[in-house]
Amino acid sequence: MAIKVLLVDDETSFVETLKRRLTLRRLEVLTAASAAEALALLSEQEPDVVVLDVRMPGMSGIEATREIRRTHPTVEVILLTGHASLEASMEGMTMGAFDYLLKPVSIDELIFKIEDAHRRRNLRRAGTEGEPGGPDGHGGGGG
C-alpha cells in the first residue's frame, strides 16, 4: 500500500511541484495550504506522514506539529522549511517532529525520510496494538 503523505505549505507552486514528483514516485499525496486546512483534513483522512512548512500565515508549523502529535499520536511529522533557525528546529523536534529538513532538499532524501517516518509509525502501531509486525516482512534479506 502506498504511503499516504500530506504536504502543507502556503507556497502553492512548491506544493504542486512536490506533489507531482512524489506521486511519480508512487506516494499518495494530499495537500493543504495552511495548518488549519491540514488539521481539518487530518480528521477526515489520516495520512501516514505530514510534511509541514514552518513559517505560514496563521498557525505556524511548530504549533501544528504539537496539535497533530496530540490528536493523531501515530502520525509522523516532518518539518520542511527554508527557516534555518536553531531555535525553531529545536522547538519543532521538542514538539515531536520526526525530523527538521532544510529547503532545498533533494527529492530522494525527502522520500527516504518519509519512508523512515512511515516505518516508525508502523512499528509504533504494531507495538501499541500488539500486532506481530507491520508490512515489512522479516527475514527477506538476501545474501
Partner: peptide, 16 residues
Amino acid sequence: AFVHSRCTAVGVSVYA
C-alpha cells in the same frame, strides 16, 4: 546561510 543551515542540521541530527 551556510552557517545557519549547517548549525541547524547538525543540531537536529544530534537531537534525534
